[in-house]
Design a protein around this nucleic acid. Structure first.
Lengths: 118, 118
DNA sequence: ATACTGAGTACCTTTTTGGTAACTATGAGA
DNA sequence: TCTCATAGTTACCAAAAAGGTACTCAGTAT
């Protein structure tokens, strides 16, 4: 069996080095879709296919990847139902919920910023 | 003269599309060093060489690049003194300062998060 | 004449990220 | 028996971001 470079051995935030908390936060939500995923999941538990609908401009692969990294970092909880066809539900953990205020601020700052500079 | 892919024609946040403010914010501070640069500049005006000392594990080139993008996005102000050897000072603009509360939150969330998950 | 200085730029390589398409599993329904 | 559905995985490729090294420019000090 060969070593593979799949989702499973992506470096989690714990294995890196940081000089300040900002880097940690960015490592966790800095991915292209992660912040948005957390933002959407704040509305409640969602199935993979729900998320796919919300993020229609990304691929299954990307979604899976980002979700798995969020899971590894302990921000989302993934519940697999042993049934066919498969059913998988995603929801926020306590940590995932605790970042919400930051996302809110980022959202309003971003909108404000765009308004001011146009 | 050939087209070149240097700092000058990196896409600024204005040229992209966003679905929500979060993406805008990430586009602006999501670069590997940008948030930290803004964080440090909050202490006051700095010369390029001051920043180089703070970010000793990155290269002049990376610093320049990130600073230029921040300048293009209107978060930092770059003042060049017409003297030799050159002197260039960087400081935050109003927009640059307005993002500080978010950085603070990110900093403390990150530290807290690391503590909880170790 | 030469070396030094700060703040870069040019050119190239490596690493990371994103995308496409094909493949999987398993039970239900036709 | 064949196809459909969901939630993936995998291999392969392209694009973007990051990194490294060498070079520049124009005064000033030696």
């Amino acid at each position: 069996m060969q070593a593979n470079q799949s989702v499973a051995d992506v470096m989690t935030f714990r294995e890196r080095e940081y000089k300040c908390g900002i880097d940690i936060t960015l490592a966790v939500v800095g991915g292209k879709w992660k912040a948005s995923i957390l933002w959407h999941l704040a509305q409640g538990t969602m199935r993979f296919s729900d998320l796919q609908r919300q993020f229609s401009d990304t691929t299954r692969k990307m979604l899976t990847q980002q979700l798995r990294e969020l899971e590894e970092d302990g921000l989302v909880y993934r519940k697999v139902y042993a049934q066919v066809p498969p059913k998988v539900e995603y929801s926020l953990t306590e940590s995932g919920r605790s970042i919400h205020p930051i996302l809110e601020q980022m959202c309003s700052w971003g909108k404000q910023f765009l308004k001011e500079s146009s």
